[in-house]
Amino acid sequence: MDYRIEKRETFKLLAKVAKFRNESISEDGNAGISDFWKKCGANGILDVLKQNTNKYDIYGPCAPISKESTHFEYGIGMEFNGDNIPDGYTVWEVKPTLWAVFKCIGDNGDCIGETWGKIFSEFLPSSEYCNKCLNN
């Protein structure tokens, strides 16, 4: 699996955010997140993000999953350098932390689903960074 761990300082993401059921991350064949990527590509959402950044890296940030909630938030975003937040978008301030950065290259949303599958079947079960969070 192609990934790297990097430390990032505080930055802001402009993101289109959707809610997904907690169970969806472990359901075989669940295409909710990859379908969200496809929809965002088709609906011009990525174009809006590009208009509000000077860095074109695309992020798929995931809010923490909680036992107290049935859903989690997942966004598609780019670093935000503006002042005016477009309607329907959210700004997430990302605190300094370690990031697991996964390379996902493809011409459609299928690579997103494949990468998510590998994250949960390969990376998380064997990672020194995440074993504690899986056992809680």
Rank of each mutant, 00 (worst) to 15 (best):
N131I: 11
Y129G: 02
D107V: 07
K12F: 05
D83A: 06
D57T: 06
Y74D: 02
D35P: 02
F102Y: 10
P125T: 07
W92G: 03
C62L: 14
N81S: 15
F80L: 10
Y89D: 09
E27S: 02
E68L: 12
N131M: 06
K55G: 15
C62E: 07
M78T: 11
P61G: 00
K39H: 13
S121M: 07
E114C: 06
T10N: 12
E122Y: 07
D35I: 03
A15D: 05
Y74F: 15
P86W: 02
K103F: 12
L14I: 08
E68R: 09
I58P: 00
G88S: 10
N52Y: 03
A42P: 01
D83N: 13
Y74A: 00
D2F: 02
N136S: 02
S69Q: 12
G117K: 09
G117M: 01
F102W: 03
R8P: 07
N108K: 04
G75A: 07
N136K: 08
I119V: 11
I45L: 13
F20N: 01
A31H: 03
P64V: 05
T10H: 13
C40K: 00
L13E: 02
E27D: 11
T97D: 14
G29M: 09
A100S: 14
I76T: 05
L14E: 11
G82S: 04
N108T: 07
R8Q: 15
N135Q: 14
E79K: 02
T115R: 08
M1V: 11
G32S: 13
D110H: 09
A18F: 05
K16N: 15
N136R: 04
E114Q: 12
F11I: 12
T10R: 15
S69P: 00
E114L: 06
D47M: 01
F123V: 04
V48E: 13
L14A: 08
Y89I: 08
N43H: 01
W37Y: 15
Y129K: 10
K12N: 13
R8E: 14
G32I: 14
G29L: 10
V101K: 08
W116E: 09
I58T: 15
N22Q: 10
H71P: 00
P61Q: 02
I112R: 01
G82Y: 02
D2S: 07
L13I: 05
I76K: 04
